[in-house]
């Protein structure tokens, strides 16, 4: 069945997306580990389809400041992928790569911003590579864009781009474990609805009728 909105996904389709979330996050963790030169393990990620307001509560409210890396997808799958980098994550990267940490995002200089952009970009690219390999899709990615601002406004970006189609958003949340510490990893994958149907069809769980 072709779906018109995320909330129409069947449990089989949801399970398939969850599997993609797991595989993608696993790959992203491996690339993060290579970048920071430390072993990074992951806990079973949680893939959820949530309404926008629910997603905002899930990530910790609209106003806290966070960093976000956004990559646009086009080709056989179009949409947006976001990596939301909360302070723990930022400090893991900065400490490993530059031996410094920050208490406020205001302390981020040009080099730190560039490093975080690249880490987000590589994690997203690895995730999408795993996805495109799995579903045999040709997906093109834009250069990454970086911002530091209220997380509610960052999370609203995929909603505004595809908000005419659905009030739902797909979130992939897991914890990276590094140096015995749990670091939340927050990824948002937002294919447009046409692409989502195409993806499910390619994976053989959506007949397209």
């Amino acid at each position: 069945m072709t779906i018109k909105s995320y909330d129409e996904l069947s449990s089989l389709e949801l399970d398939t997306l969850k599997e993609i979330g797991s595989i993608g996050t696993g790959n992203a963790a491996t690339s993060l580990s290579a970048l920071i030169g430390k072993p990074v393990r992951i806990q079973q990620p949680e893939v959820r389809i949530m309404e926008y307001n629910e997603a905002i509560e899930w990530i910790g409210g609209p106003e806290p400041i966070t960093a976000g890396v956004l990559v646009g997808m086009s080709g056989q799958l179009s949409g947006i992928m976001l990596s939301v980098q909360q302070l723990d994550f930022v400090n893991l990267v900065l400490e490993s790569m530059m031996e410094r940490t920050i208490k406020d995002y205001m302390e981020l200089g040009e080099i730190e911003r560039s490093a975080l952009t690249e880490v987000g970009n590589i994690m997203i690219s690895t995730f999408i590579n795993a996805l495109s390999g799995l579903a045999d899709l040709d997906i093109k990615l834009t250069v990454p864009a970086f911002t530091v601002d209220m997380q509610g406004a960052i999370m609203a970006v995929p909603m505004a781009e595809y908000g005419g189609q659905s009030n739902y958003i797909m979130t992939i949340g897991g914890n990276f474990i590094c140096n015995g510490k749990e670091i939340p990893c927050r990824l948002l994958l937002s294919p447009d609805i046409r692409s989502l149907n195409f993806l499910l069809r390619k994976l053989g769980v959506n007949s397209g009728e």
Binding site: G68, T142, T147, I154
Partner: peptide, 15 residues
């Protein structure tokens, strides 16, 4: 009405 991300190419972000 802000532009949260500066994305090169395409019409993403003009909303």
């Amino acid at each position: 009405g802000a532009k949260m991300f500066e994305i090169s190419g395409g019409n993403l972000g003009n909303i």
